[in-house]
Design a protein around this nucleic acid. Sequence first.
DNA 1: CTCGTACATGCCTTGCAGGTTATATAACTG
DNA 2: CAGTTATATAACCTGCAAGGCATGTACGAG
Lengths: 121, 121
Amino acid sequence: MLPFAVLAEPTRRRILDLLRERPRLVGEIGAELGLSQPGTSKHLRVLREAGLVEVQPDAQRRRYALRAEPLAELDAWLTPYRRFWNRRIDALERELDRMPDPVSDPVSDPVPDPVSDEEDP
Amino acid sequence: MLPFAVLAEPTRRRILDLLRERPRLVGEIGAELGLSQPGTSKHLRVLREAGLVEVQPDAQRRRYALRAEPLAELDAWLTPYRRFWNRRIDALERELDRMPDPVSDPVSDPVPDPVSDEEDP
DNA sequence: CTCGTACATGCCTTGCAGGTTATATAACTG
DNA sequence: CAGTTATATAACCTGCAAGGCATGTACGAG
């Protein structure tokens, strides 16, 4: 399934939103979103195959965690459009690219631009 | 149709990519993308109802132009995820840090690992 | 070994998106 | 006026994704 289509499902986006807080068991996800158990597993399968979640087995339980890298592709597609909805955003866009990470202690490295491949006259 | 689902269609993204260069007539879009005429109109309808394109009538012709504002919603959804794939790079750097690698000095070498794509184990 | 728990998978059904063909609408052309 | 161009819409068909139910699998407890 194409990465964009994976995110077209509202339920799957809600799952990702949940996992943004912390990794969770399948049962927890299903309970919080009011999903059936097979339904939860199916959505998680799609997310897994898209590389958007990773699973860590713990006995019979499976702990799912967010894996956000594939979202960079979405971000990259979006990039050449940003200047359209606000012309002054050009500067902000570059600012976002070097967005500081408040979680980890900053080594004061220049944050690398992970995927920059678009240009436009 | 939900905004995410509108963009889930590859053809519609290609239409937007075309309109990013300049506004175009329906016929031009269909010709460049190899679409049937009704197919083109239908996709343009979906994009129009999502507010992603605007149309300017010119006699019997319709000139469609990009309207990128709704993409801001996508961008907003993406925002809280950005720091995750940045953080992942930090983690990777820590991993590399633990490895005995006498060759390079990781701190002074800003060359990033752009997109390392690893899949199911 | 048997049972209960946690999750995955298979099968079936249904709704809907996307494509095609045919037709409608509108404007220009002569 | 009739004919042509440019686009929209209607009607129909088809494939596939999402949901529900039943079952399979794996692990731990007793």
